[in-house]
Design a protein around this nucleic acid. Structure first.
Length: 304
DNA sequence: AAAACGTGGCG
DNA sequence: TCGCCAAGTTT
């Protein structure tokens, strides 16, 4: 079946008119995030990308500095205990990411000579690394020419190319990938700059709520702007409730464990959630995830 | 393939 | 106050 339209046709013209303005805007407006400095290593880029999975970069920055100071290479992190790593992760959220980052460091040590692999195909085999992270590290640390398609890029493309306020699906479609591929500059280094630039535009200007079109370097090329910024009819549902969920309970349990240098009693954990059934279920799941170590006599701690 | 998975800032 | 949203990945 034919695509809704030919991405080549659209992006051949769009590519020539939006890449320049966006990279030009980026050269002036880019935030000076610590992992963008010339001294940042591939490992530093890797750590920054994992930390930034669902956590705002403004909160990641200080954590990244402390982390890199403590574990400057994959070897250093691989030698740390889960307890140390979980505590250092602190409240970045989704602590399983911290465990997977440590696991990835061990794989890098064991299978890649301690060097972060350079290719997308290698990176994506690492624990906690999916399509986005593999592409981001390959591009930003090694200048591989790969499509980097995160939530920011998807939103910018939705607006500029498709004239929609938000992407219509919760994950990227074939068509979006085809469009992004067409837009990608032909050499690796230029492609990498384009990718950070359009990500940054999405983060700073083409924001999800109340975008600053007046500051946008490509509003003149934007289908959504041209259409008068129509509100989305239907968009991907995001279902986010948090109060009362297991996620909240797990968070409370982990907060108690992180704060204590010594094993914690079941009674102490009982204090953070009154529903015995739910609390026990969450504790079990944390143990299964390797985030909590059960000890004899009903005590618990972060895994050593 | 839908749902689970933390945390906090902002309008 | 409260819903929205943040450089996603895993099962």
């Amino acid at each position: 079946m034919p695509p809704a339209f030919d991405p080549d046709g659209v992006t051949a013209s769009a590519g020539s008119t939006i890449v320049g303005p966006v990279t030009g805007w980026f050269a002036v407006q880019a935030r000076d995030l610590p992992w963008r400095t010339p001294v940042a290593t591939p490992w530093g880029v890797f750590v920054s990308e994992v930390m930034s999975q669902q956590t705002p970069v403004t909160r990641v920055a200080p954590a990244w500095l402390a982390w890199m100071d403590r574990w400057p290479t994959p070897d250093h992190l691989a030698a740390a205990t889960p307890a140390e790593v979980i505590r250092a992760w602190d409240r970045l959220g989704y602590p399983r990411r911290a465990l997977r980052l440590r696991d990835a460091a061990a794989v890098i040590r064991d299978n890649f000579g301690g060097q972060v692999p350079r290719k997308y195909d290698e990176l994506i085999t690492l624990p906690g690394v999916g399509d986005y992270t593999a592409a981001a590290v390959a591009a930003f640390a090694f200048d591989e020419r790969v499509v980097v398609l995160d939530t920011n890029v998807r939103r910018v493309l939705a607006r500029v190319i498709f004239g929609l306020e938000h992407p219509a699906t919760s994950s990227a479609t074939k068509l979006e990938r085809a469009v992004a591929q067409e837009l990608l500059p032909s050499d690796g280094p230029s492609a990498a700059v384009w990718s950070v630039a359009i990500m940054e535009l999405g983060a700073l200007v083409c924001q999800a709520s109340s975008p600053s079109c007046n500051l946008c370097p490509i509003r003149g090329e934007c289908a959504w702007f041209a259409a008068g910024r129509p509100a989305q009819v239907s968009r991907a549902k995001r279902a986010q409730k948090f109060e009362g969920t297991d996620r909240q309970v797990r968070g409370k349990l982990m907060a108690v464990l992180r704060a204590s240098d010594h094993p914690v009693t079941a009674a102490a954990l009982r204090a953070c959630w009154s529903d015995d059934f739910q609390r026990d279920r969450c504790l079990d799941s944390l143990v299964s995830d390797g985030l909590v170590e059960p000890l004899p006599r009903g005590r618990f701690r972060l895994p050593h």
